[in-house]
Amino acid sequence: MNGMTIIVKNISSWIKILIFLFGIYITLFGHLTPGGGFAGGVILASSYILLTLAFGKRVTDENLPLWLASRLDCIGALLFLAISLVGFLFGASFFFYNFIQQKYLAQHASDFHLVSAGTIPLSNFAIALKVGASLFMVFLVLSTFRPGEPAQQE
């Protein structure tokens, strides 16, 4: 899978950082403005898909290879599970006890600030990591591995 022409390469090298920043913004402000972990993760994945389509498979092998993407996917899933379980240490009797909000942030009246809402931004981050890595893996697996064709000697 080779890259495209030089026009596409130039424009995508300018645009990729804007798409990535927008994905981070959507993820980080998910508890204040519309958006959230799922949409932010999809935007993060689409910036890497743009890189793969414009520059070819070699750039992806250097920046975000398949083994790294699968590890990021597992880290996101485990982080989300850990957030659900940590609340038990703080005296909860159910999953997803919002311990940071209930124990620390509720006294400081931190509503509408970036650091608010306890575990919700952390869950957004975990879901963005998971969704972005897994959708990028879907693209890699479906588009760059050719069935019936012998694998290239590397």
């Binding site: 204040l32 519309p34 999953f95 997803f96 509503d111 608010s116 809402a117 957004n124």
Partner: peptide, 17 residues
């Protein structure tokens, strides 16, 4: 929950399971 976006507070706190 402290979240200004009520959708985030529903899907990640009340109905996070």
């Amino acid at each position: 929950t402290g979240a200004a976006n009520i959708v985030a507070s529903v899907i990640l706190d009340y109905r996070a399971y």
